[in-house]
Design a protein around this nucleic acid. Structure first.
Length: 510
RNA sequence: GGCGCGUUGGUCAAGGGGUUAAGACGCCUCCCUUUCACGGAGGAAUCACGGGUUCGAAUCCCGUACGUGCUACCA
């Protein structure tokens, strides 16, 4: 059996969204499972939609997700070039071969003429406005023109395209690895343009030629391609490559969480969640944040994406990339689309943060702190802080909210919550606490707690009544992990400083 | 409109003739915690509809409805 080769073939037209990454992921998983190659092919045949920087961005996203392609424009293999625009001359050759074989023809119609044809059809009450077997002999093409006329037009380089001649009343059969046997009539198909007037191929020609030349064994793509699959199957046949045709699989779509339709790039801003993997600097709309910037771990992002359309049949929901490679199978991919749920996406991230080691998180969290103007000097303390708070962080960015008070003393202190039940006894307790704490030989969480409780008992106060004030003194409000853990990590000097500070605030207010 | 593909709680889903129809997210209650989370225990909530086939259908067949995709010199 041939070596498995799959490809991810995005168009460099802007940010890479969820669906794109998932397609890349499934391709990657399949390739790695069968020790095959994962190829990146840039489908930049539409010059009008080309966006500068999009290609590099796509590669950056794949790298962030750790599903980097084995071959691509950034890493040439033996099947390059990997940009379709650089393969332009190849396609023409095959398109002309199809003309010679009688499966395609030159068409010289201007856009206006095609528009007229559609208007006429509409006028006749037809609702099928396609350029197909019903109208092609009335149009200006090498089928309706004499060979001499055609030759003359080609000679003066009259703008033209090459169209596939779709025969009527034929049936195309093919097998989809997810959906099984599929049969479609050619009657609904139009004579697709194969080669555009600018000499660039359309997707239909390019995908077949490139998959053949790049020795692709399995062609996976979104479900939106299913209706045009017969065109591709026909092309494989007409070009005489039928024996080399890849196996097909069409992935279900990712749908909008609210109403209807597939998730689009616009839905993110409308619904308040990211749709791109990473921040995309749109030339028109400016910066659009991605999952990365929002604080997602790539492991979680991929895990979430994988489960949106696939599972291994067990209750397991958390998978590492390696586990996914091990467990993946195309036939367990679902056949229907799934609505994207941002809440569930966050849940995956939370799970991944909880199970990640300090070593794994350190670097990312440090960058977030640095962005906020805090430079971490004590690595060991920082690690302990991460360990202490990671269970309460859903996003990486939550580490700041949960941990900033270790580095900055609270700018606002919720004295109101203390004041309502404040009295001289409590004040005395904290004065005594400062005195005792400052004499403490070691500064461990348990000892701090024991000492605290002993003094409370001696003062005839319930520790519970004192812990909330203590918490507010140290962090400013009613939040955060265990208060003695906080004090322990804060250190003696800082702890005492914060108690004194709040005490003086309280005295002013009484 | 035509053609294709779908349809299990609000969402993601397991299940493919006999099940009390798993599990997860979210929501609610309680426990733990004298903060908030985490964790633990419970709860509400589902087989689109109508016909068949069958002793028996969420599971098979047909129809309808609904959803979704395609119907470009875009991918």
């Amino acid at each position: 059996m041939n070596k498995v080769r799959v490809r991810f073939a995005p168009s460099p037209t802007g940010g890479l969204h969820l669906g794109g990454i998932r397609t890349a992921l499934y391709n990657y998983l399949f390739a790695k499972k069968y020790m095959g190659d994962f190829v990146l092919r840039v489908e930049d045949t539409d010059q009008t939609r080309y966006v500068k920087g999009a290609e590099e961005y796509i590669i950056d996203c794949l790298n962030w997700c750790k599903i980097s392609p084995d071959e691509g424009p950034h890493r040439e293999g033996e099947y390059g070039p990997y940009r379709q625009s650089e393969r332009k001359s190849l396609y023409k050759e095959y398109a002309e071969q199809l003309v010679k074989l009688g499966h395609a023809y030159y068409a010289f119609d201007t856009p206006a003429e095609i528009e007229t044809m559609r208007e006429t059809l509409k006028g006749q009450g037809k609702d099928n406005l396609q350029y197909d077997y019903r109208v092609r002999f009335n149009m200006k093409n090498s089928l309706s023109l004499s060979p001499e006329e055609t030759e003359a037009l080609l000679k003066i380089n009259f703008p033209h395209v090459i169209r596939l001649k779709i025969e009527r009343d034929e049936f195309v059969y093919f097998k989809d690895m997810i959906r099984g046997d599929i049969e479609m009539s050619t009657n609904g198909l139009d004579d697709k343009v194969l080669l555009k007037a600018d000499g660039m191929p359309t997707y239909h020609l390019a995908v077949v030629v490139d998959d053949y030349l790049m020795k692709i064994t399995h062609a996976f793509r979104g479900e939106e391609w299913l209706p045009s699959a017969p065109i591709h199957v026909l092309l494989w046949k007409y070009l005489g490559w039928e024996k080399h045709m890849p196996e097909w699989a069409h992935f279900p779509l990712i749908l909008k969480p609210d109403g209807n339709g597939k998730l689009s790039k616009r839905d993110g801003e409308r619904l308040g969640f990211p749709v791109f993997a990473m921040e995309w600097n749109d030339p028109v709309k400016g910066e659009i944040k991605g999952f990365k910037e929002l604080g997602f771990l790539p492991e979680a992002f991929l895990n979430m994406l994988a489960m949106l359309g696939w599972n291994n049949g067990t209750e397991q929901e958390i998978f590492s990339l390696d586990e996914m490679i091990d467990q993946f199978s195309i036939d367990r991919i679902h056949v229907h689309g799934a609505k994207f749920d941002f809440e569930k996406a966050k849940w995956y991230n939370h799970e991944w943060i909880k199970k990640s080691s300090v070593e794994r998180l350190e670097h990312d969290v440090k960058k977030i702190f640095e962005k906020k103007g805090v430079s971490v000097s004590d690595e060991e303390q920082f690690g302990s802080i991460i360990e202490l708070i990671k269970d309460r962080c859903t996003l990486l960015t939550d580490f700041w909210e949960q941990g900033h008070f270790f580095y900055n003393s609270p700018s606002e202190i919720d004295t109101a919550s203390i004041l309502s039940k404040w009295n001289e006894n409590k004040n005395q307790f904290f004065v005594e606490l400062i005195r005792t704490y400052s004499l403490l030989p070691s500064w461990k969480s348990v000892e701090l707690e024991n000492t605290f409780k002993e003094i409370a008992a001696a003062s005839h106060l319930k520790p519970g009544e004192l812990m909330l004030p203590f918490r507010i003194m140290l962090v400013g409000g009613k939040f955060g992990p265990g208060i003695f853990d906080i004090a322990s990590l804060l250190g003696k000097t800082e702890t005492i400083k914060r108690i004194e500070h709040t005490l003086s605030l309280l005295n002013q207010k009484i």
